[in-house]
Design a protein around this nucleic acid. Structure first.
Lengths: 205, 205
DNA sequence: CTGGAATTGTTAATCTTTTCATAAACTCTT
DNA sequence: AAGAGTTTATGAAAAGATTAACAATTCCAG
């Protein structure tokens, strides 16, 4: 299958493309050129065209790309034309903020379970989801075959919880903790501790 | 100056290195080999050594790297040996969660101002910071010469607020909104909408 | 104090990603 | 319907990043 050979850097740019295309769609635009996309995204038009061409020719010479058509193609490439169930572990302030974040459900992600170990919070409902005891986590995640987990626990327990998740079939972890997690090959790990990106930026200031 | 020629990919990995080194330091480790670092971080040892060597030889043949020495060198390279003042705009749930996040101050970042346009929240104090009217933003940011801003406003006003920030000297924006921002050259922009990384991951699932 | 084991720093080779350049395709005006 | 002006798709060239390989050090055991 062609998909296996697509560079990771390219895949990482696709969500930005869909974001911009959504914006154009809302503005009522019907088509857009690679040049315009590139200008807005701060890349070169050649790069945009090349990236898109990995998945086939969606453009039209002289006109550019049809916004809706390209958007739907990208959504399909990224497997966004379905609903992804997500579990969240660690219902602290950040966890609660993410649970209440409307941006997930509007883009096809749904937090369907949340877990914590604090008796104060277990049993409460946040954004319509009842918080369960983390002791239930493995049973629940296994049972519903949840593929994606958001990890917002304290650093000290991050690795332990991650191991448990992986043991019951989680395939991707969004790691919000300031911890270096070790995961087996085949498990996708995204490190999105807010501090990491700040620390990259200060190099350039 | 040598720094100008260091690849962005390398700089992006350095925070992960400091994260792991901090962990080793807490465990009381004195030295670590490139091989061990690589194993934990899921990279090759050659890559680690090469990355580090951009900044000079901090290791010792036969022994590895002194944890404290390497950590301090990296912190200095990343300009983390000072305090960085940060402004936050948009005190919604995510904004509040970030304001209360302890991970910033413990790593040298301090949210010193917060702004919103909601009369309900203006004047309240969150995590010790009084929320000001966003109308005051430009005056305050200019006056204190804040270099970094966290953008957690609704998508609709993101570009406008970003423009205002840049006009009064902000050099880096952490964009948490699901928006493609256009910023002039020389301004660093980090897109950290939680949805973006989820959308990258689903390609591989 | 010597020899074997461990580990770095760095050069060269390989692999990946970006940019360039241009033919082919389409639109629009007259 | 012809010609001028756009714009894509793509193969080839250039630039950039990663990996491999190994000489040069250092450590440690005996």
């Amino acid at each position: 299958m062609k998909r296996l050979t697509i560079p990771e850097v390219v895949v990482a740019r696709l969500p930005l493309y869909t974001q911009k295309l959504n914006q154009l769609l809302r503005e009522g635009r019907e088509s857009v050129s690679s040049q315009e996309m590139a200008d807005h995204l701060g890349i070169t038009s050649a790069q945009f065209r090349k990236d898109i061409s990995f998945f086939g020719g969606f453009g039209k010479q002289g006109t550019g790309y049809n916004v809706i058509k390209l958007l739907e193609s990208l959504r399909s490439v990224l497997n966004l034309d379905r609903i992804w169930e997500v579990a969240l572990v660690g219902v602290g302030r950040l966890g609660q903020a993410l649970m209440s974040y409307h941006g997930f459900s509007s883009t096809g992600f749904e937090i369907v379970m949340a877990f914590d170990n604090d008796p104060e919070i277990i049993g409460k409902s946040i954004a319509g989801i009842k918080v369960l005891d983390v002791k239930e986590m493995q049973k629940q995640i296994c049972h519903r075959e949840i593929p994606i987990a958001i990890l917002t626990v304290p650093a000290a327990s991050a690795q332990e919880i991650a191991d448990q998740m992986i043991a019951c079939g989680v395939k991707a972890i969004m790691n919000y903790t300031p911890t270096t997690l070790k995961v087996p090959k085949g498990i996708r790990l995204a490190n999105i501790d807010p501090v990491l990106s700040l620390q990259t930026i200060t190099f350039y200031l």
